[in-house]
Design a protein around this nucleic acid. Structure first.
Lengths: 332, 332
DNA sequence: TTGTACGCGTTATCAA
DNA sequence: TTGATAACGCGTACAA
């Protein structure tokens, strides 16, 4: 049956006693072939387990390949996004290269170059830590789509972060909180800054002065929640609520608060972003701004494939709605 | 600088006023080139942002590509394994195709065929749901390594599951538990069955009769923990401990128990497998059999690349140790 | 030290 | 309905 090395179209042709063109025609349905010879060829292909060489194909046509630049594979949000991307791509005959960027701008750049070398037809960018010129100067036959990365001029998918953050903050305000901290990333593009903007907007709506002391940043890292909470605890007065820029920060926050005997939501309320499975796992269950994680991935893949196949020129930006999911980590 | 379409080696050659062979020689360090012309060529390559076409290269030499068959992208265990694989591959010049099998044997088979078409040099198999002949009859120039998948005759990486399960069960026994349930997967290869064997072995060591009623199975699915616990609750007598075949089952178990007001570990003790981050997130924190997740991935990648580059013929099986991590979900 | 020419496995054009 | 044959972009004997 198989277990041999790769056969070529020529092998099949000679077994079927036809020319390679004929075999190619049945493989691609690209021209007329007499039914009997078609059957004969198909049978041989089946029996020999012949598989056309995708690399050679990619040389003549397109590679049917795209590159996935993943900021942090350990982050459940990205996992769910990737899931949406992959499902769509797979259904449309594309394969994805897996690039774990790990919040590292130089690694991201390296990966982009590698993907160019692989002749991917498209790139899904979920980060954009590196110089944007790297992305903007890509060869014209590589399409790009960004997810929440704030690169202007390329197809993009966003969640309505500002609205989501405003709604979340207003919810806290409506519960009576007046001293609300914001936990964010250092060094992140506008997209996530919109969450800060939403936070500010809500304060403004309630005529609460914005206090920069309450806005804490750190570089993305597994301990960021714990770290930022430590800094929070050094403030003269402990806030009564935290808006955390992503869910996965929260176990660390819980841990640090717990060490000090500070209870959630009794002493302090917490809201996250993303609505990953984590929200239901931790205790108390996390109130969060839900993003359409899977959907965002799917839409991004859709935009990318659309641009590839239809050579669309105009740039599309899609904004998907968020939704506040109230659980147990918030109270008045 | 760039923003144009892909250049070819010929473009570079003509710009440098040399032949393509000379350019190729500098690209691959594959022959003598006069220093001055080498510099000239390198400069042009740099300025034009030329990147050799990986597909064309793959046609002449090897594709430098491997396929990753991931049983379940949502499972934190696999994420950590993948992380180890990817790090190693990346350091060794390989790119990975991302294949989300999703516990689906036919999808797995499809993906394997796709990977053959892509002419990957190797395949990392973390599942083997499909007929093993599919794997065994792969073209000879595709190497394989399996992780915990129980496919005989190919390079494999295992954790010492039987020992781990025995140790965990004995720990429960030492706490006084005599009525211990086992939650497993339906339809899974010997590898994970070793966990059941370890469980049995421990019972034997304590002269406790094995009660098949206490062993509950279901197909892998996000709700499996909840599901199995429901069935557990129908038993005439509720066991006082559960050994769950993987951590991510446990939030569902907690949920179902919680609904009935059954407390962990007060009324029932629980031990999981994998020691993913989840263990520290959930409440009470989960006692678990720790596997060297990242390490397993790394070792697998190492075996694969070794086999590819050294054409090793003998088959290697690596067993990595487990370790019981005691947290809060177990008591007497 | 350099260049010519062939082959890797396809697809596509053109004649037959 | 079929078959030569020229690309696709690269690496490499071999010749110069």
């Amino acid at each position: 049956m198989s277990g041999k090395r790769h056969l070529t179209i020529e092998d099949i042709a000679s077994m079927a006693e036809v020319s390679i063109s004929t075999v190619s025609r049945v493989l691609n349905n690209s021209g007329p072939v007499r039914q009997t010879t078609r059957n004969k060829i198909m049978k041989i292909i089946k029996n020999t387990n012949y598989t056309p060489n995708g690399l050679a194909r990619g040389l003549r046509k397109t590679s049917k390949t795209i590159g996935l630049l993943i900021p942090d594979i350990k982050n459940l949000f990205f996992i769910e996004v990737i899931n949406g991307i992959e499902d769509y791509l797979n259904q449309h005959g594309y394969s994805a290269f897996f690039c774990n960027v790990n919040w590292n701008s130089s690694k991201e750049k390296e990966y982009i170059e590698l993907m160019v070398e692989r002749r991917v037809e498209g790139l899904v960018i979920m980060s954009a830590f590196c110089d944007e010129s790297v992305i903007r100067n890509l060869p014209t036959d590589i399409q790009t789509v960004s997810i929440q990365s704030g690169v202007k001029g390329i197809d993009s998918v966003y969640s309505k972060d500002q609205e989501g953050a405003r709604e979340a903050t207003e919810y806290l305000l409506s519960l009576g909180h007046r001293n609300i901290a914001f936990f964010g990333f250092k060094n992140i593009k506008d997209s996530l800054n919109n969450r800060l903007n939403g936070y500010k907007e809500a304060l403004q709506n309630y005529d609460i002065p914005y206090d920069p002391q309450l806005v804490l940043y750190a570089d993305p890292n597994p301990n960021i929640g714990y770290e930022l909470t430590q800094r929070l605890l050094e403030l003269p007065q402990l806030p009564t609520a935290i808006l955390a820029i992503y869910d996965q920060m929260v176990p660390g926050i819980y841990g640090a608060l717990n060490e000090k005997g500070i209870s959630v939501p009794g002493d302090i309320s917490i809201i996250g972003f993303d609505n990953t499975v984590l929200c239901e796992w931790i205790h108390p269950k996390l109130t969060t701004v839900s993003l359409p994680n899977y959907e965002m991935g799917k839409v991004a893949a859709e935009l990318l494939i659309d641009r590839i196949t239809n050579d669309r020129k105009i740039c599309k930006e899609v904004y998907l709605p968020t939704k506040l999911i109230i659980r147990e980590s918030t109270s008045n």
